[in-house]
Amino acid sequence: GQVNVNNTTYTFPTPKLAKEFAQKAAKKYNLTVHVSGNTVTVK
């Protein structure tokens, strides 16, 4: 799974890890998680 945070893309071996990372990043920066297919964007 891929996660985009502040124009930086992070790649994870599983969608589960990507989702967990996205949720932590969203909480940390007070942003929202947007899911589109296999790509998760935090903005």
Rank of each mutant, 00 (worst) to 15 (best):
G1M: 14
G1D: 11
Q2S: 12
Q2N: 12
V3E: 12
N4H: 13
N4W: 11
N7G: 15
N7Y: 15
N7A: 14
T8A: 08
T8S: 09
T8Q: 09
T8V: 14
T9S: 08
Y10D: 01
Y10F: 10
Y10L: 06
Y10P: 00
T11R: 08
F12Y: 02
F12N: 00
F12T: 01
F12W: 02
P13G: 06
P13S: 10
P13N: 07
T14Q: 02
P15K: 11
K16R: 08
K16P: 03
K16S: 10
K16Y: 08
K16T: 10
L17R: 07
A18G: 01
A18F: 01
A18Y: 00
A18M: 01
A18V: 02
K19E: 11
K19Y: 13
E20T: 06
E20P: 00
E20K: 12
F21T: 01
F21Q: 01
F21L: 01
F21P: 00
F21N: 01
F21Y: 05
F21W: 15
A22L: 02
A22Q: 02
A22Y: 02
A22F: 02
A22P: 00
A22W: 02
Q23F: 10
Q23Y: 13
K24Y: 15
K24E: 08
K24V: 12
K24P: 00
A25H: 07
A25V: 15
A25Q: 06
A26M: 13
Y29D: 05
Y29V: 05
Y29K: 06
Y29N: 06
Y29M: 05
N30Y: 08
L31P: 01
L31T: 07
T32G: 05
T32R: 06
T32A: 09
V33I: 07
V33S: 02
V33W: 03
V33N: 00
H34L: 12
H34Y: 14
H34G: 04
V35H: 04
V35L: 09
S36I: 11
S36H: 11
S36A: 09
S36T: 09
G37R: 03
G37K: 04
G37M: 04
G37T: 02
G37N: 05
G37I: 03
N38R: 11
N38Q: 05
T39Q: 08
V40S: 00
V40G: 00
V40Y: 04
T41E: 05
T41P: 00
T41F: 08
V42A: 02
V42E: 00
V42S: 01
K43Q: 14
K43M: 15
K43Y: 15
